[in-house]
Each structure stands twice: as structure tokens, then as C-alpha cells.
């Protein structure tokens, strides 16, 4: 019921604070269907596959391929899936790539803010990992997850760090971390290699990661042989350029028909 036509005080209807006139001045909020409703990530679209990482005697090595898939289509084949944050941390992500780009933006803001404090202290890899875990857990609580599994590696003050966070906020630190197909194929290989040689050096660790990525390339249909290897160690943090894996040559079909004039 509207009381706008009444211009004298009525008990219970006196507009003491001029609320009605203020409301009339504000433009009406309109529902525009073109703007749509709330949009959530309900399934991933452009995805990266496994990330694998292992600690060596004086640091951490992480490896990933450079493929982004669109379902079963190999959509982008030269994309870096690992990013540096500050001077001590690298994060690699599997899952929805756009969500990882969003995470990258958020974490870079955090790192920039920390840099601007200018207090001589730097965010440690563990702090960044913890912050990331809260972001992912908070998003899952909203029912709008960031569809990634992130592997965080770092090296600061003589201490190496290796941790993992997933889309529901599960977070832990370990000496070996894998995700996706890597958990099925690479994890047992990495665990065995580490049991056999608990104090492996950087070269051995790099070779191990490369071997695991090669096995993953053979069995995971969503992987590629173009890989990158990231290291966090005494020399600081580094992400290698693209490496083409040496693999078995599938040339068997070549010899069947070499010259069509002979057919």
C-alpha cells in the first residue's frame, strides 16, 4: 500500500528522516537479463595436467608440461604453467588455467604490497602457500571454487619448501608432491627413487623429474613432451626454458608407402 498521496502526519506513517523522498531520487535498480546471474566455475574448460615436484638435498625441483587442453583437444601447446612470486617462491598449477591466472593476479598484489612495506622482510614460500590455501578454501565455501591444484616450491634462509593446495582447500607439506595423473603414475616412481637415494643432488632430481614427465607423456593422453623444470635452491629460483623430451620415435608407419608411383 502506498501512502504517497497523504500529505498530513499519520500515526506510524510519519517520514521523519525523509526516507521516501531520498529513495525516489535514487535510480531504480533494474534486472537486466543480459548481465546474467552469478557465474560459478562448475567444471573446468581449459586445463593443464599434472605437476610433479620433489625435494633434493639442497632445494626443490618441480616439473610440468606446457600443454593446455580444451577437453580432449590439445588447444595451446606452449604455455608456462609455473609462475614466480617474489624472489623465493614458484607456484605450478594444474586444472583450469583462467583460474590460475586469477590466482596469479591476487598473489602478485600480495607480493607487491609486501614489497611496498619496505621493511626488509620478504614473504616466505610457506606464507604464500598458507595465503593461497585460505583463498582456495574461501572460494570453495562460496560454492565458486578456483579449479586448480597448486604446487608451491620455494627456498628461503637455507630452508627449502614444498607444499600443495587443492580446490577444496586441502593443504599440506611433503617431500614429494604430485597432482592429477602424476599421483597415479609419477608418485610411486618418485617415492621409490627417493627411498633408494634419500640425498639426491640437483642433477639427479632434475633427471628424475624429466624421466617421470616422459612416462607421463607416454600414458597421460592430455600431456605433451614440451616441458619446463623449475628449481628453488641455493642459487635462487629459476624456471627453465622449454625442453623437448627425448622420446621413442614412432616412425614405423613411414616405410609402408614411400613413393606413390610404385603403388
Amino acid at each position: 500500500m502506498s501512502f504517497e498521496h497523504i500529505n498530513f502526519p499519520v500515526f506510524g506513517q510519519v517520514d521523519y528522516f525523509g526516507k521516501q523522498s531520498q529513495q525516489q531520487l535514487q535510480p531504480q535498480q533494474q534486472y537486466t537479463p543480459s548481465h546474467g546471474g552469478k557465474k560459478n566455475t562448475l567444471d573446468p574448460i581449459v586445463t593443464g595436467t599434472s605437476i610433479i615436484a620433489i625435494k633434493y638435498d639442497k632445494g626443490v625441483v618441480m616439473g610440468s608440461d606446457m600443454l593446455l587442453s580444451y577437453g580432449s583437444l590439445a588447444r595451446f601447446n606452449s604455455i608456462q604453467r609455473m609462475t614466480k612470486f617474489g624472489g623465493n617462491t614458484i607456484i605450478g598449477a594444474s586444472g583450469e588455467y583462467s583460474d590460475f591466472q586469477s590466482i596469479t593476479t591476487t598473489l602478485n598484489e600480495l607480493v607487491t604490497d609486501d614489497h611496498c612495506m619496505d621493511d626488509g622482510s620478504r614473504l616466505s614460500p610457506e606464507e604464500i602457500w598458507n595465503y593461497l590455501a585460505r583463498i582456495l578454501y574461501n572460494q570453495r565455501n562460496k560454492g565458486n571454487p578456483l579449479w586448480n591444484t597448486c604446487v608451491v616450491i620455494g627456498y628461503q634462509g637455507g630452508k627449502s619448501f614444498l607444499g600443495k593446495v587443492d580446490l577444496v582447500g586441502t593443504c599440506f607439506k611433503e617431500d614429494i608432491v604430485t597432482c592429477g595423473y602424476g599421483s597415479h603414475i609419477a608418485l610411486p616412481l618418485l617415492r621409490k627413487a627417493r627411498d633408494d637415494n634419500p640425498n639426491m643432488n640437483l642433477e639427479q632430481a632434475k633427471k628424475l623429474i624429466e624421466d617421470c614427465l616422459r612416462v607421463l607423456f607416454y600414458r597421460d593422453a592430455r600431456s605433451s613432451k614440451k616441458i619446463q623444470i623449475a628449481v628453488a635452491g641455493e642459487q635462487g629460483i629459476d624456471i627453465s626454458g622449454p625442453i623437448e623430451l627425448e622420446t621413442y620415435n614412432w616412425n614405423s608407419g613411414e616405410a609402408a608407402v614411400k613413393n606413390f608411383s610404385q603403388v
Partner: peptide
């Protein structure tokens, strides 16, 4: 039915 988002995991 694509695998829908599951907010709960039993660890």
C-alpha cells in the same frame, strides 16, 4: 553429467 563440484572430501 560432468563431474560436478564436490565441496566435501573425506580424507
Amino acid at each position: 553429467n560432468h563431474g560436478r563440484f564436490e565441496a566435501y572430501v573425506d580424507n
